[in-house]
Design a binder for these strands. Structure first.
Lengths: 208, 208
DNA sequence: GTTTAAGTTAAACGTTTGTTTAGTTTTGGT
DNA sequence: ACCAAAACTAAACAAACGTTTAACTTAAAC
């Protein structure tokens, strides 16, 4: 895949939404064609097959997914401030790309489907390296504790967020969040601060 | 659905594994019939349809999923000990039932599929009530801090665990976990202790 | 031993699936 | 204006899908 033209992007956008809503196997090429107002044959014409379209979709999205951590690193701020900004960056990226995240999580674990995700993993490794730098800064200044498994920090931030979304119906019932707006408001004003609180508590050096 | 006979259980067990591996839409009735060594028609004969079989599967599994929290509550132990036991109960249940959890998370969020999960939510609410009791115990003895959003504690425990599993390939690469055994060992000796550490840090009353 | 119901089967049902074909329209360079 | 390449379409393709049918076997009851 060299370059994507306008029509291809239009198809991928529709496909992304439908795959996230109904799953890859639950979405037919005809569904995509109908909603994208194109002919069924265009999928094969542009991407070769439905499977290759999924690969193109993942490739397209992941290439755009690197965190803007460089600027964060260079920022002359308190490690605690950097940590907050870091969490916000992560959550915002996930919120913007929640469709493709759903797809990747779902189809990746799918045994029979073999998607190329080396690039996806590379992005995650890069981001992990930057997190490690921020954590080490905090450790050197004595503000963060020493025994931190940095690798598990992304899983903590994203895990809490995804679990909240995946059990959405339960939380809407328990927390009395009637509308989608209520739900997003809770994420903004309660969930994200909670995630920050969790990481702060975890990283705080008690011996200081 | 009144009672499940041996054959029905055999079918559901195979279906559970395949749905978890390949998704509901990615698994055909013929796949299930082949692996369960039964005739294709038996699915419709016993359950009515493929969809109703999924409902029966979820109903069967969730009825068996209540945490044994009652004994934990009555235990005359330190709140910190109870917290540890609580986390172990949660994780162990998820590890035992990880297939049905995968299915529920992914098929539930599926827009077009309308599965009855009131019972599933009821179980979760019951469990949440018990967690609240344990937390309140710790708060009354002054060991836990007061401003805890109890509702988000299950999402924290399960979220970290699921995220670790969902991005398995990434973590196998980053943490150099070559075999399945290595992976499970890491969960046992690193991930679960980490989750305990997270919750302890979060709940600990600093003003004590 | 006969009867009745439940269990089980292979085959066929009508749809829907992803993909291809063969033909038409549009586009852009000369 | 012409032509070749690209874009696009309706129709058809075989394969796979979930489900139903009708016939057959087994099991239990009387």
């Amino acid at each position: 895949m060299t370059e994507l033209n306008e029509k291809q992007l239009q198809i991928l956008q529709v496909a992304e939404r439908l795959f996230a809503e109904k799953g890859f196997d639950g979405t037919s090429v005809r569904d995509i064609a109908r909603e994208a107002s194109i002919n069924i044959a265009m999928v094969s014409y542009y991407f070769g097959s439905k499977d290759k379209m999924l690969e193109a979709l993942i490739l397209w999205r992941t290439s755009d997914m690197r965190l803007q951590l460089e600027t964060l690193l260079k920022l002359d701020a308190d490690p605690w401030e950097k940590l907050e900004k870091l969490i916000e960056l992560y959550i915002n990226r996930v919120r913007r790309n929640h469709c493709i995240y759903r797809i990747i999580h779902f189809e990746l674990a799918n045994t029979q489907r073999s998607i190329k995700i080396e690039e996806f993993n590379e992005v995650k490794k890069r981001n992990l390296g930057m997190i490690r730098q921020i954590v080490e800064e905090g450790q050197q200044s004595g503000q963060f504790r020493k025994d931190i498994i940095v690798e598990l920090l992304p899983a903590t931030v994203l895990g809490i967020y995804f679990q909240f979304h995946n059990t959405r119906l339960f939380y809407q019932s328990v927390l009395d969040l009637k509308t989608d707006e209520d739900f997003e408001q809770y994420v903004e004003h309660n969930l994200i601060p909670y995630i920050k609180q969790v990481l702060k508590a975890l990283l705080k050096n008690e011996n200081q």
